[in-house]
Design a protein around this nucleic acid. Structure first.
Lengths: 335, 335
DNA sequence: TTCTATATTGCATTCGAAGTCATTATTAAT
DNA sequence: ATTAATAATGACTTCGAATGCAATATAGAA
C-alpha cells in the first residue's frame, strides 16, 4: 500500500521537534530523557511507524545481538526441541539465533567465513565436530563458543555435556545384573565423537565386568540403518543376550527388526537398551530402558556459559556435565 | 591470544597500498578490479585475517541478507527436517536464517517488533497463525512473507501448502471402500488453522458419502493427548469402524491405546489413518496408511516464492499447493 | 604515434543510530 | 534571590563498507 521508505530517527526527530540524539535515547533503556520528550517521541514514533534500525545499532555498538547456532542435521532429528529451547533461553538474554548447518567437514571453511562476517556475539555448536584448530580460530577472533554434547579433551573448550560414562554404565549394570553373558553393540557413525565415546565406554565397561569380547556393528543413528546392520549380523551369528544401542532410534529399529524378521521378542527373548530418552522410546510398543538427557538443563547451561563468556571473554573455559536420568522401561529380560 | 581489534577495509587498504574502495570491490562479486590489485588485496587480507563486516554492508546496501523463520514448537516437532532444509535452500540464495518462535498469540507484537528492527529481507512462517491484519503489517513494511502450510483465504498471501483436501479424501475413500460405516475423528488443537481445516474436510466429506454424523474429539497433535482423548471416548461409547487422525503422531497414540487398554488391534478390529508421513508412521508396529507431505518441494517452493518477492515486491501473491503422496500402510481393515 | 574507447582507481559521501561533550534548563539548597 | 548541583538537550563524530563520480591508466584502432 504505502510504499513509504523506512522512517529513521531523523524523521521522527524532525517531526517531534527534538534532536536525533533525543530519539535515540528514548529507545535505549536507562538513558536520561524528560517525561515530556519521551512521550512526544514515542507518540510520533508510533504514528510514523518508526522502529530503531538494529543494523545501524549493531554497527556502532559492535554488538550484533545475534548468536550463531550450528546445527548438524543429525542433532536436529534427535532433539527437535533443543533449538526452540535454546532460542527461548537466548531470547531471555536478548539474543537472536542465527542458524547455520554443518553436515560435512568440507563446509567448515565457508561456515567460519560466514560466522566472522556476521559478527555474531557468540556461537553454540550442537553436536558438530570441531577440532582444536578450529577452536583456536574462535579464540583468535575472540568469539566465545560453547559445544553442546561434545567433548574436545585436548583443548580447553566450553562444553555442556550429558554424562555418557555414568549413564551407559548404569544401563550395562542392569543388563549384567540380569545375568546376561553375550552382548552386541550397535554404535553410531564413526565420524561422530559422541558415537565413538558411547561405543568405547560400553566396550571398556563390559570388559571390566569380565566380558572378554563384544562385537560392534555400526549404524548411522537412524532406525533403518540399525535394522539393516542387525539383519546382516544375525544372518551369520547367533543372537546375543543383550543389544546395547548407541541411541533410541536405533534401539527401536532393533526391536522391530528382531520381531519382524527373526521372531525374537523384547524383552522375553532378548534385552535391548538405548540412549537419549526420545519420546518414542516410551511408546507402548517399545518401552525402552534408556538414559534421558536433561535437555532443559543442558540448553540452559549452554546459554549461561555463553553469556558469561560474552561478558567476560578472558574467563577460563568451563565444562559442565549433567547426569541423565535412568528410565526403566520394559526392554530388559528379567531373570 | 592476540587480542587484536577487528581488521577493517581501511587497515587492509593501507597495508596493501590501495584505497578502501579497492578493497571493497575485491570482496564484491562482479566488480571491476585488475588482477594485480585483486591478488595484492586478497593476500594482505588473508594475512591480516580480514573479513568484510556484514553489518556495515547491510547498513549501506539496505539488505540484511537474513530471512526470519518463524517456528511454532508444534511445527518443529512434526518436521524437524523442515528447518535445515529451509536453511540449505536459503543458503543457496545467499540468505541466512534468523530464528524466531511464536507459540502464544500474545507474543506476536514482540515478535513483529523484532522482525522490523532486524530489517530482514523476508519472512517464512512455519505453521504459525497470522491473521490478515498482521499480514497487512508486513505489506506496510514491505517485508515479503510466505506462509508454510497455512491458508489465509480472505487475504492474498503467499503460501505453500500441502493439498489437505485431496489427501484426506483419498484416505477416506479407502476407508469407505472398506465398507466402514461409523467413524471417529481425532482432530488437532482448535487454535491451529491446519487442524481445523483437516477436521472440516473430513467431516464434510464423510457427510457427502452418506455418513450422517461423525463425532470429533480433540488432541494437541501429540501422542499422549490422543491416547487420553480416545480413552475417555471409548469408556462411554462403542468403538467405531475407523478412526481418522489429523496427524501421524496421534494415529500412533491411537493404535497404542487401542492395543494396550482395549485389546483392539489395528487393522484386524479397526482401521486408523493418519496424516503427514512422519518417519515413525512406517515403523513395523504401526505401518499407518497416511499422506506424506512433499517436504522438499514445499520448502523449495517457499524459498523460491520468497526470493521472487524480495526481488520484485509488487508481484501478485501466489499460492502453491502440492499434492501429498498416499502411503498405503497396513492400518486399514480389508473386507 | 596519436587518438578513442574501455578498464581501474581513489575521493568523498552515504547508510542510521549511539554516544561524547559542551551547553542549557531545571531543581534543590542556602 | 543566588548559587550549586543535577538533569536534559543538541551538535557533531563515529562505526565499516558501498558506490557515484571524476580522474587516471590501459588497450586497441587508425
Amino acid at each position: 500500500m504505502s510504499k513509504q521508505k523506512k522512517v529513521t530517527s531523523y524523521d521522527v526527530a524532525r517531526e517531534a521537534g527534538v534532536s536525533q540524539s533525543a530519539v535515540s535515547r528514548v529507545f535505549r533503556p536507562g538513558f536520561s530523557v524528560s517525561k515530556k520528550t519521551r512521550e512526544k517521541v514515542i507518540a510520533t514514533a508510533n504514528e510514523m511507524g518508526y522502529r530503531p534500525n538494529a543494523i545501524a545499532r549493531m554497527l556502532i555498538t559492535k554488538q550484533s545481538g545475534m548468536v550463531a547456532v550450528i546445527l548438524s542435521s543429525q542433532a536436529n532429528l534427535n532433539y527437535p526441541e533443543v533449538l526452540s529451547e535454546l532460542n527461548k533461553e537466548l531470547a531471555l538474554n536478548n539474543k537472536r539465533v542465527l542458524l547455520f548447518t554443518l553436515d560435512n567437514a568440507d563446509e567448515l571453511d565457508e561456515l567460519l567465513e560466514n560466522i566472522w562476517t556476521f559478527q555474531v556475539d557468540g556461537v553454540i555448536a550442537l553436536a558438530a565436530h570441531f577440532d582444536s584448530k578450529s577452536l583456536d580460530l574462535f579464540a583468535k577472533h575472540s568469539t566465545p563458543i560453547v559445544l553442546y554434547n561434545r567433548n574436545v579433551p585436548e583443548s580447553n573448550a566450553n562444553t555442556v555435556c550429558c554424562n555418557h560414562d555414568k549413564g551407559i554404565k548404569q544401563l550395562i549394570d542392569l543388563l549384567h545384573q540380569a545375568n546376561h553373558k553375550s552382548y552386541l553393540i550397535i554404535a553410531g557413525p564413526t565420524d561422530s565423537d559422541v558415537a565413538n565415546e558411547r561405543r568405547e565406554i560400553a566396550e571398556n565397561y563390559l570388559h571390566t565386568l569380565g566380558v572378554e569380547y563384544t562385537p560392534v556393528i555400526y549404524g548411522d543413528y537412524g532406525y533403518k540403518s540399525a535394522r539393516e546392520a542387525l539383519n546382516e549380523w544375525l544372518k551369520k551369528h547367533p543372537k546375543p543376550d543383550a543389544i546395547i544401542c548407541s541411541n533410541d532410534a536405533m534401539a527401536i529399529g532393533v526391536i522391530d527388526e528382531l520381531k519382524e524378521n527373526f521372531h525374537i521378542n523384547v524383552p522375553d527373548d532378548i534385552s535391548v537398551v538405548g540412549f537419549d530418552g526420545i519420546s518414542a522410546s516410551s511408546w507402548y510398543n517399545y518401552q525402552i530402558t534408556t538414559i534421558q538427557q536433561p535437555m532443559k538443563q543442558l540448553t540452559k547451561a549452554a546459554v549461561d556459559i555463553l553469556m558469561e563468556r560474552i561478558e567476560n571473554p578472558q574467563a577460563a573455559a568451563e565444562a559442565r556435565v549433567f547426569t541423565g536420568s535412568l528410565i526403566e522401561g520394559n526392554s530388559i529380560k528379567t531373570r
